[in-house]
Design a protein around this nucleic acid. Structure first.
Lengths: 182, 182
DNA sequence: ACTCTCTAACTAACTGGATAGTTACATAAC
DNA sequence: GTTATGTAACTATCCAGTTAGTTAGAGAGT
């Protein structure tokens, strides 16, 4: 078989992302990760160090990708919420991984996330100063609600989501954010 | 030592609730549950069958308690949301256990939760018919949002919650629901 | 009140399998 | 020929679950 360390590492990272998203850290199996990547598990230890660091790498990559795919827009928060919803429906791995992280890693502050939050808070503040965003809610309040509302359907008992169309679910999110800003 | 099967079972259930809330199913250790309950782990298998059924029992008890402590009120949804928020802050175990459940048990529908949701949806429908609740949002949409918003602070990056007062966080939840119903 | 029997309640030690991580080697490719 | 890349087999430990007991205590009999 052709040898390509970089390609192998990518396949391992992708397999790990799926495995951790599905099973969490404690429930994931490094043998399964290696099997899904089509290589030996000794490579996991060679490239990543240990299971924990493999998880960190998978998580960091998912978060980085997420921020890239769903850029914030303080100028149109309902549209941003809609895109966030779209991303969560298309990529359940993102929300699942961050949920596992919060449960298994404890409530430690994530530097990468904090940095992004700081920037967003400043943008929201500026948008309110510019009159582009209603000032009923503080920027912190808005940011917290903007994160929770697009994830609402993914965190409810499934029969509520299953009984509705994608468009209905999306409209719920977008309209809720519009209402908050009315 | 005095022997009391019922008391032992309760202590095991309480210890299990804490252990599963903290570590989830895969990460929990039956040895730790027994140690916390002050008895031998063979009793776990005697009373509950296996680790999975122990989790089910701990979860069912937490959910039943939760519904009892935070009754739904279609007549005053902002107040209900505030109480839900209060419960989540006072009892992190509730949200943590249900989050572990959703991640580790997959998106199976929970009969106990579905039953409660059905009743609540009917109450919301009736409240809208009576004109007591605004009809901008469908009952399903309202229920989903009413579940997500009170949990918003518990699911965000911690520095946002840590930098705010409890009253500020509570007001965010109550005001957000008021806004949705405006 | 005491003794004895029986059993529900409980325990210490064990088992078999699973698992993260390692090692000693093989081999592709430069 | 050398080395980066990769593997099969191994190891030590962990863990859910079980087993073969022990014992607390209830109840009957005296």
């Amino acid at each position: 078989m052709a040898r390509d360390a970089h390609a192998t590492r990518q396949r391992l990272l992708e397999a790990a992302t799926a495995e951790f998203a599905e099973h969490g850290i404690a429930g994931a199996r490094v043998d399964r990760v290696a099997a899904a990547a089509g290589c030996n598990k000794a490579l996991i230890y060679s490239y990543f160090g240990n299971k924990d660091d493999l998880f960190e790498a998978a998580f960091a990559r998912t978060i980085a990708e997420f921020y890239e795919l769903v850029p914030f827009d303080a100028g149109d928060l309902p549209a941003y919420a809609g895109r966030l919803f779209d991303h969560y429906e298309a990529h359940p791995v993102t929300l699942r991984l961050s949920t596992w992280y919060r449960l298994e890693r404890g409530n430690g502050v994530l530097p990468a996330v904090s940095a992004v939050n700081s920037v967003r808070l400043e943008r929201l503040r500026q948008a309110q100063v510019d009159g582009a965003v209603a000032t009923h809610f503080d920027p912190v309040q808005l940011l917290v609600l903007l994160q929770a509302i697009p994830a609402a359907w993914a965190t409810t008992n499934p029969e509520l989501a299953d009984a509705s169309t994608r468009e209905f679910r999306r409209r719920t999110v977008v309209d809720a954010v519009k209402k908050l800003l009315a």
